[in-house]
């Protein structure tokens, strides 16, 4: 696997109200975003457990991000804030393991922000591309 040909595998945990709707908005508006991102839809990002994040990395994800509703606008009141805290904790665990907390990020969008959703997908793809394959994936020889 040469570094130039590296295509990152990225998992995005999105809530069905904002993150997923924003992905839809991007579709309706024919805004394209990198195909590297695999979307996991959840009823609320409050359902994102640290374990789910680590699981993704353990199974070969190069990067993970969470897309939640804007702060103060969560459909489940504060699920997005829980997600934000957990992402921060998971970042510390990833640093501890040696995977790197910078492979994980938290974002907030509204349902209408298809362009922002696409921009985030592109930003994370570029960030992870620059970081190269996750050391776990590299060790797995995938």
């Amino acid at each position: 696997m040469s570094e130039t040909a590296f295509e990152p595998e990225i998992t995005a945990f999105v809530c069905q109200y904002c993150g997923d709707m924003a992905a839809d908005s991007a579709g309706w508006n024919r805004i394209s975003y990198p195909a590297n991102v695999k979307i996991v839809r959840l009823p609320c990002t409050g359902k994102v457990d640290v374990h789910h994040i680590l699981n993704a990395f353990e199974h070969g994800a190069d990067g993970v991000y969470v897309v939640a509703c804007p702060e103060g606008n969560c459909h489940h009141i504060n699920g997005n804030l829980s997600a934000k805290r957990r992402v921060k904790y998971a970042q510390s665990l990833l640093d501890e393991v040696g995977v790197g907390g910078n492979r994980l990020e938290m974002f907030h969008v509204t349902a209408a922000q298809g362009d922002e959703f696409a921009r985030i997908a592109a930003e994370m793809t570029e960030r992870i591309r620059a970081l190269g394959p996750s050391p776990v994936r590299r060790a797995m020889g995938k």
Binding site: H51, L54, L93, V97, G98, V99, V136, R138, A139
Partner: peptide, 16 residues
């Protein structure tokens, strides 16, 4: 949950 997290961390670290 914490046992799961630790096991996952250990697996990744040892994989690396």
């Amino acid at each position: 949950k914490e046992a799961k997290l630790l096991a996952s961390e250990l697996r990744m670290a040892r994989q690396m």
